[in-house]
Amino acid sequence: MEDFKVETGYQLTLDTVKDLWTKTYNSQGKPDWSHILPYYDDEIYFRDSIQEIRGIAEFREMTERLTNRSKDLSMHLVRAQQNGNDLFIEWEMTISYTKYPSSILYGISRFTINDKGKIIEQRDFYDLWGDIFDNIPRFGTRYRKFLKKKFG
């Protein structure tokens, strides 16, 4: 594993990522990113299946929106790996929105670490609608049948 030089004293390693992400989503139900945000570069580029974000201010706003929308959120890390400057975590996130039943989302995140040892890019991969629809009686089954019929 390669060591990274960090000007701010934050040393991001695979073990640090596993520890931080587990704590992020288990603070009495509400997610809290305050301990993770210092590990992100000011020029962070984030993308998932819904949005594309550039810069720490916009990223922080996204984390606040998720906190406000969710009643409860927890994350289970299934596995984590490092390949050079890229860290990968496979996760199961259980989210309970204020007006809807709990849903489990299954996904993977890739973090790219820059020469300052901070996250410069994060890409999250998950099937938002499929995982949510699976938790709605009868609808999830119909949705999966539709996908299989149309896309194979």
Rank of each mutant, 00 (worst) to 15 (best):
K18S: 11
D115C: 03
P38F: 06
Y40Q: 11
W129G: 04
T22I: 05
I53T: 12
R79S: 02
D72K: 09
Q51C: 14
Y10C: 08
I120S: 06
L77Q: 01
E58Y: 02
F111K: 03
K5G: 05
L87A: 03
T63V: 11
I132Y: 14
N83V: 12
E92N: 06
W129Y: 15
T112K: 09
I132Q: 03
Q11L: 14
E52Y: 04
F88C: 07
I50W: 10
S74L: 00
G107A: 09
I136Y: 04
N26L: 05
L14H: 09
S103Y: 10
G117D: 12
R60C: 03
F46V: 02
Q51Y: 10
R47W: 01
G107F: 14
F59P: 00
V6L: 08
Y100S: 13
Q51M: 08
E92P: 01
K99P: 00
N85K: 13
E64T: 10
I113N: 08
F88H: 02
N83Q: 07
L12Q: 14
T94G: 09
I89F: 00
T8A: 12
S96F: 06
M93P: 00
A57C: 00
F125W: 04
H76N: 05
I36F: 11
L14Y: 13
S96R: 04
K99W: 14
W21N: 00
Q81L: 05
I44K: 05
D42W: 03
S27H: 11
V17E: 14
K116T: 01
T16M: 14
A80L: 01
E92G: 02
K116N: 15
S102F: 00
M62R: 13
D42R: 02
Q122A: 12
T16F: 06
L14W: 13
I119N: 06
W21S: 01
I120N: 04
Y100G: 08
N68K: 13
F125D: 10
L37A: 15
T112V: 12
F46Y: 15
V78K: 06
D32P: 15
I44F: 10
R110D: 11
Q82W: 13
F46E: 04
N114C: 07
E92F: 04
Y97S: 15
E90S: 03
G107S: 05
Y126D: 08
Y126P: 02
D131P: 06
P101N: 03
S103D: 05
W129V: 11
E92Q: 15
I120H: 13
P137D: 11
F133Y: 09
N114P: 05
